[in-house]
Computed example of a mutant assay.
Amino acid sequence: MTIDLMTVLAIFAMAAATITTRMAGLLVGRLLKLSPSTEEILQAIPPSVLMAVVAPTAFASGWAETIGCAVVALSATRLPLLPAAAGGVLTVAVLRALGL
Rank of each mutant, 00 (worst) to 15 (best):
A55S: 14
W63T: 15
P56W: 02
V49D: 00
L82I: 15
L42R: 09
P46E: 04
W63M: 15
T77A: 15
V49I: 15
V49W: 02
A93L: 14
E40Q: 15
A60G: 04
G62K: 04
F59M: 13
V72R: 08
A44K: 10
L81C: 03
A84G: 14
Q43M: 06
Q43F: 01
L82S: 12
L82W: 12
A86I: 13
L82C: 05
A93E: 06
I67H: 05
E40K: 15
A85D: 05
G68T: 03
F59L: 15
V53K: 00
L90G: 13
P47G: 10
L81Y: 02
L79D: 07
G87D: 06
I41Y: 14
A55C: 11
G87L: 13
L82M: 13
V92L: 02
V72W: 01
A86P: 02
R78V: 11
P83S: 10
W63D: 03
W63Y: 13
L90W: 01
L81D: 10
V92W: 06
L42H: 05
A76H: 09
C69N: 02
G87I: 01
A73Y: 03
A73S: 12
P83K: 10
A76K: 01
L79P: 05
S61M: 10
A73Q: 01
P47N: 05
V49C: 04
I45M: 10
A70C: 12
G62V: 05
P56T: 08
A73C: 09
L81A: 13
P80Y: 02
L82A: 15
G68I: 07
P47W: 00
A55N: 07
A70Q: 07
A44C: 12
V54Y: 04
V71L: 14
V89P: 10
V49A: 10
P47S: 02
P80K: 04
A73N: 03
A76D: 07
T57V: 14
Q43H: 07
E40M: 13
A60Y: 01
G88F: 02
M51R: 00
A85L: 14
E65R: 07
A85H: 00
V71H: 11
S61V: 02
A86V: 13
S48P: 00
L79I: 05
A70R: 03
A85W: 00
P46N: 08
A64V: 11
L90K: 04
T66W: 09
E39G: 11
A70L: 15
S61R: 11
A84V: 00
L50I: 14
G87W: 00
A70Y: 01
A55H: 09
I41Q: 14
I45G: 04
F59Y: 13
V53E: 06
L90P: 04
G88A: 09
A44I: 02
